[in-house]
Simulated assay, not measured.
Amino acid sequence: MSTFQELLSSWASKLPIYEKQEAESLVSWLLEHHLGWRRTQILDQADEASFPPKLFEDFERLKIGEPIQYIMGKGPFYGREFIVSSATLIPRNETEELVHMIIKENKKAGLRILDIGTGTGCIPISLALEMNNPEVFAVDISEEALEIAKKNGDVLKANVTFSSCDILTQTPDVSELDILVSNPPYIPEQEKTQMHRNVLDFEPGLALFVSNDDPLIFYRTIAEKGKQLLKSGGKLYFEINEKYGEEVAELMQNSGYSEVQILKDLNGKYRIAVGRR
């Protein structure tokens, strides 16, 4: 028998790829998922012999670096839980900031919105549920990702129209948009060596990486097609690679967007680009 804190420390020590505090948080999350135990509870003893086999199986997956969101099949985003799979990126805090900005800046009712490269659907679903009766569309090249996005839309009761589209070769069948938003692939292949293994080994490369030769290909293509899709005065929002802020701003200006801004996230990194058609 161990106390809960002893168990937490012991299991966390078996996750050397993470810092101690993060490892303890991951173990706590796993225990809560399987046993209903919360870290805030004070448990005098924890009997590992009574744990279900699936808990130990999932802990082995955690030990090799698999993200806990994939292990549990869900991840939090903007106050809700989203189904995730290996076909989708895990929703991240920076993207929450992008969503929050769009909600804050666009109060008008009935706005038409398109999200390109939707993944789990976390962006359009959050906008559909938080904004004033918008009309929301979302596209992705991955059929597997679209299946997950549609499930999330159904579970969360969000009115979003999802469809398949390869943005590099096709143009979405929508028009007169007020808002176009995208968190496209933006990591050049050459940066793979700098990435944490649990991202590189488990998250979908299709949603992460672009060619070293043209790392801004998605921004350029979306900005150009945005000129057709957005109504006059409509806004284009991007999540960006912090290293390419100036280049994305120049690209948007050259494409004819006005009021272009590159904004920092809460960690002080340039993560959001916005401009007006």
Score class of each variant (00 low, 15 high):
D214I: 00
M131L: 10
I102S: 06
G121K: 08
L127P: 03
G205Y: 06
P172E: 04
I272T: 14
Y270D: 09
A145R: 09
E6S: 11
I148C: 12
N183A: 07
P16Q: 09
I179W: 01
G245M: 07
S255M: 12
L129N: 06
L229D: 04
E81W: 14
L251F: 07
F4P: 02
N152P: 08
F209H: 05
V155C: 01
G256W: 12
L206T: 11
L229S: 04
L146F: 08
N183Y: 05
G256H: 12
A145N: 08
L251E: 08
E147A: 14
Q21M: 06
V248K: 11
P184L: 05
R39G: 15
P124R: 04
S232M: 04
I90E: 11
E189D: 14
M101I: 08
R197Q: 15
P52N: 08
E66P: 02
N212D: 15
V84E: 12
L266C: 06
K151A: 06
I103N: 03
G226K: 02
G153T: 02
T193Q: 14
N183G: 08
T161G: 00
K63D: 03
A87T: 00
E94A: 11
D140P: 05
A158N: 05
G65W: 08
R276K: 15
G275R: 07
F202M: 03
G75P: 02
I217S: 01
I113S: 04
I272P: 03
K104E: 15
F162V: 04
L177E: 04
E60C: 00
A273H: 03
I102T: 05
E19V: 00
F77H: 03
S2I: 10
I71K: 12
M1A: 11
I42G: 01
L127G: 01
T120F: 08
T161H: 09
G268H: 10
Q5P: 00
